[in-house]
């Protein structure tokens, strides 16, 4: 079988979705873990976001995270484009739609709404890039001096960005979309890759539920605690 045949078959396309999905799941752990450094201010009142800014500086300046970032963006775009293509292709297969829908009787609403949830996340991502990633990477931003080094004051940028209530609202809505996207996507990715042993599926399902609740919750707490000045 040719590579092109494999990757254009319906299982091959899903294989890409599953693999990139798991890559993005791993990225979420790194992202949530690093950003959780903002909560260091709760433990040390002299921190003032230093730990977070240092961590962000490391990710932005060290060669390994920068290389991984290229892979990450390839993964994200593959996941988005393939996901949208599959959504439109699959939607076109029915022809005339039913008068009465099967709806939630046989499947969960979020498992049928991965395209919609993913699109909400894409819109959020564009906003998120414009607010944080592009200034830090390309257009430049305010700096602070930590241990004699000039580093981007991403902590300060978070504080000013999350003063706006609508921004906090958009971020929280995106976190809810992410939670439901993961609730189906986490375990579905493993099934797509062929996992069928009940021993492992039980672990994957449990882990998937815990992950889908915890990670979006940690993310959602960031704009909320910034907005209400719980950290700072």
């Amino acid at each position: 079988m040719k590579w092109s045949e494999f990757f254009t078959s319906s299982v091959g396309k899903k294989f890409i979705m599953g693999l990139t999905g798991i890559t993005l799941i791993l990225f979420l752990v790194v992202h949530a873990g690093l950003n959780a450094c903002i909560f260091a201010t709760l433990l040390d009142e002299n921190d003032h976001g230093e730990m977070f800014n240092k961590a962000a500086h490391f990710m932005g300046s060290n060669v390994i995270p920068r290389l991984l970032e290229i892979g990450l963006f390839l993964g994200i775009f593959l996941h988005i484009i393939q996901g949208l293509v599959l959504e439109f292709q699959n939607r076109s297969k029915r022809g005339i739609s039913y008068k009465v829908n099967y709806g939630n009787r046989g499947s969960k609403w979020y498992s049928r709404s991965m395209g919609l949830l993913g699109t909400i996340l894409l819109i959020f991502l564009i906003l998120h890039w414009v607010q944080f990633w592009i200034p830090s990477r390309f257009t430049g931003m305010e700096e602070v001096t930590i241990d004699g080094k000039q580093v981007h004051d991403l902590f300060g940028l978070m504080k000013t960005t999350f003063e706006e209530p609508w921004v906090v609202l958009v971020y929280v809505l995106a976190c809810i979309s992410l939670a439901y996207h993961l609730l189906h996507g986490f375990q579905s990715a493993f099934r797509t890759l062929g996992l069928r042993s009940n021993r492992y599926l039980r672990i994957v399902k449990g882990l998937g539920i815990a992950f889908s609740i915890l990670i979006p919750l940690v993310f959602a707490l960031m704009p909320i605690s910034m907005h209400f000045h719980w950290v700072g």
């Binding site: 319906s10 294989f15 699959n90 046989g106 499947s107 498992s111 991965m114 579905s188 797509t192 062929g194």
Partner: peptide
């Protein structure tokens, strides 16, 4: 293509398990 929603398994008159889809994958 399959998105693992499970609707097929829920309606199958012969109760074929969705595990088969993971095996097919």
């Amino acid at each position: 293509s399959c998105t693992n929603t499970g609707a097929c398994e829920a309606v199958c008159p012969k109760e074929i398990s969705i595990t088969n889809i993971a095996r097919l994958n």
